[in-house]
Simulated assay, not measured.
Amino acid sequence: MKKLLLSFLLTQCMLVSAQTETLVTPNGKKVKVNITPQWELNGNTNNELKKLGTKDAFDLPVITNDTEKMRITTDGQVLINTDKSLNGGNNAKLQINNGTTNGALQIVDGTQGEGRILTSDANGVATWVAPIAAASFMAPPGVQMDLVYDHFTYSGRSLTLGKGSWIIYLTDRTGNWTPSTANEFNYGELVAGWSSSSTVFTPSSIFANAGHSCVSTQIIPQNKFLNFNYVFVVNVTKPVDTIYLWYQILGNVTTNIPFIYNGNGDSFSTAYGSLIAQKLY
């Protein structure tokens, strides 16, 4: 009888909940034993929501091989391979300390792939996406495009950009500038404009404060070449957006027809004109 009672008491020491019942031992002592179901090693059938954890201000550590491997803190942080919050991560709800070994985090959801970047949508749902390579255009050699005074002309060049912020570098060489008067204050303006259409000049909405165009002004030497350089920063909000480059000329230029010059097909031709976009973030 004593062995049976001792076995019963030892079993009840494993119980988690606080419901008890008073039993009387053979020697007349009254003892309280836990009679509520316990968390079993191979799992429970609870039939209702149950909780596992602490009821006071103490963290909940989890150990394997007698070593702590994970901890849920009273602040709601989940710490893996560390028993305290890492430096600079006091607000992070998940922290992993893998020492100096890389590859501490692995997410496999079907969108993963070599060189992909983890990004999120507006709701914070993360997926792996391929990085957007810098879109670029190099002006082909041996091509000239006549410019029109005070009127935009499509250059035949365009950029297709993915969502994000981009910086665009544009350079072109122009020729056949002839000033209207013979004085040192003659100037020429090459206006680069970005359109959402290749057939009609419609200022693109991705440029801030209607800054769809950029003017580069230079003093005109008689019948000389002029190099024009531009830098644009744009923010693309659509998944993909295509913009088309248009040009017009302004200034006191009333004779001859300036043109975009891209060389005569020699080895230096492509250096005269380029259109390059690089993603910032």
Score class of each variant (00 low, 15 high):
residue 185 F to L: 03
residue 197 S to L: 10
residue 210 A to G: 13
residue 194 W to K: 02
residue 154 Y to W: 11
residue 179 P to G: 08
residue 207 F to P: 04
residue 187 Y to A: 14
residue 165 S to D: 15
residue 214 C to I: 09
residue 181 T to E: 13
residue 218 Q to H: 13
residue 177 W to I: 00
residue 156 G to K: 10
residue 215 V to Y: 09
residue 175 G to N: 12
residue 193 G to Q: 02
residue 169 Y to H: 11
residue 214 C to Y: 12
residue 147 L to V: 03
residue 191 V to C: 05
residue 160 T to K: 05
residue 144 Q to M: 07
residue 154 Y to G: 07
residue 197 S to D: 14
residue 198 S to T: 08
residue 214 C to L: 14
residue 220 I to C: 04
residue 148 V to P: 01
residue 209 N to L: 09
residue 172 D to T: 12
residue 165 S to F: 05
residue 225 F to S: 09
residue 203 P to I: 04
residue 142 G to C: 03
residue 202 T to I: 12
residue 209 N to K: 06
residue 184 E to A: 14
residue 201 F to A: 15
residue 158 S to N: 13
residue 202 T to D: 11
residue 161 L to G: 04
residue 191 V to A: 04
residue 221 P to Y: 09
residue 178 T to W: 10
residue 201 F to M: 15
residue 179 P to E: 01
residue 224 K to I: 08
residue 201 F to E: 12
residue 196 S to G: 10
residue 217 T to E: 03
residue 193 G to Y: 03
residue 222 Q to K: 07
residue 205 S to F: 03
residue 227 N to E: 14
residue 211 G to P: 09
residue 190 L to S: 04
residue 193 G to W: 00
residue 227 N to M: 13
residue 178 T to V: 13
residue 185 F to V: 03
residue 214 C to N: 10
residue 197 S to P: 06
residue 192 A to I: 01
residue 151 H to F: 05
residue 182 A to H: 12
residue 219 I to S: 06
residue 182 A to N: 11
residue 177 W to M: 03
residue 226 L to C: 10
residue 200 V to G: 05
residue 164 G to S: 05
residue 212 H to E: 07
residue 167 I to C: 07
